[in-house]
Computed example of a mutant assay.
Amino acid sequence: MKGVLLVNLGSPDSTSTKDVKKYLGEFLMDERVIDVPYFLRWILVKGIILNFRPKKSAKAYKKIWWDEGSPLIVLSERLQEKIQHKEDIPVALAMRYGNPSIKSGLQELKDKGVTDVLIVPLYPQFAMATTETILVLAEELRQKHFPEMRFTDIPAFYHKEEYIKVLANSIKDYLADKEWDKIMFSYHGVPERHIRKSDVTKSHCNPSDQNFICCKTKSEAHQFCYKHQCYETTRQVVEYLDLKPEQYFTTFQSRLGNDPWLQPYTDKTIEKFAENGVENLAVVTPAFVSDCLETLEEIAMEGGEEFVEAGGKNFYAIPCLNDNNDWVDVMVSWIDEWKNN
């Protein structure tokens, strides 16, 4: 019997400092998030970050928390419910970090008689700290607890025509009645070394190249290159919306530590745009399909405040696809394609 496991990032169980600390500990101790030797990672996370970060993050979560719970969890549940309504096979939901866990999601499918699982990482672009860590953990769990199961996964869909169309139309619809000067495509940031580590050729990717020569040069490295996939998403959406070069810009957000991360940085670019006379800025976050702390607090709230304080007028945070009905239909079509093969 076939079944589907949708997997998103995850969230603390509540906004309490204790729950946030537990969540951050699981997240930051992942070797594909902070990719340094275990001992150094333990010192950095357990000895330093978890002594101050949870309290600050808990305050941020409180700013965006809904009555129903974590926005990311609630929106993921809505997506899962809509997909399940259109599917005749079990569709379960899991989070890479926190609850519901990937193990519990697989157990739910097993209890329903599922042996053939389609794993759907809810990330358009491939990255070590997103898609890869989900698939690696799922396989570890399969070998240890679910040896009778077979796994298939949906690869990064950053360039799929149907996804681009839904994303582009969501941007167009949101801005239809708004005056805007520029659209910023803000992607989750990753350290430059992650790009190099994911380069299967070990020679093609140059993440610090601001001219994007490697990203524009055809290579098998693009299959796992987060930077290329982000810029390709932007390129295809821009082409679909027929935007001019001066109407859009691509940036990266949420850096941690002193190592070089993908640039240009979102926060610095927001301020620069305002200081240079951009009055009406729209920001879309295509690295996520569900709104979360990063989109709701870091972009919509902090980014909006930074823009206005630097002289901007109107700041528009475009919602993620969430449980958009057209997006649901795309997901269902991918599941059906797999299911019927």
Rank of each mutant, 00 (worst) to 15 (best):
C320P: 08
Y97R: 08
W334L: 05
K86R: 02
I89M: 14
A92F: 08
A92S: 12
S104W: 05
K197N: 09
W334Q: 00
E294D: 04
G257R: 11
R32W: 07
S170D: 01
K339C: 05
L175I: 10
N341D: 13
L293N: 03
D30L: 07
D181S: 14
E139A: 06
K227P: 01
I213Q: 14
D336T: 08
S11Q: 02
W334V: 05
Y61N: 06
G189E: 14
V190T: 11
S219I: 09
L5G: 06
E161H: 11
Q247F: 09
V237H: 02
V283C: 04
G98I: 12
W327R: 00
G113H: 00
Y231E: 13
Q125K: 04
S208M: 06
V328Y: 00
V33I: 13
A176N: 13
G10Y: 08
P121A: 09
I64L: 04
P155A: 15
L167R: 03
I64K: 11
V114K: 12
M149C: 06
T130L: 09
Y248C: 00
T266G: 12
Q263C: 09
F315R: 01
E294W: 06
R255L: 01
L281T: 06
D111N: 14
N325H: 07
E161F: 13
L9H: 11
M95Y: 10
L118S: 01
V283S: 07
A94K: 02
D116G: 06
D13S: 12
I318F: 06
E87A: 03
N314S: 12
V190L: 13
L167M: 08
G69H: 13
R196A: 04
E161A: 15
D177A: 12
A300M: 02
I171Y: 07
T250G: 08
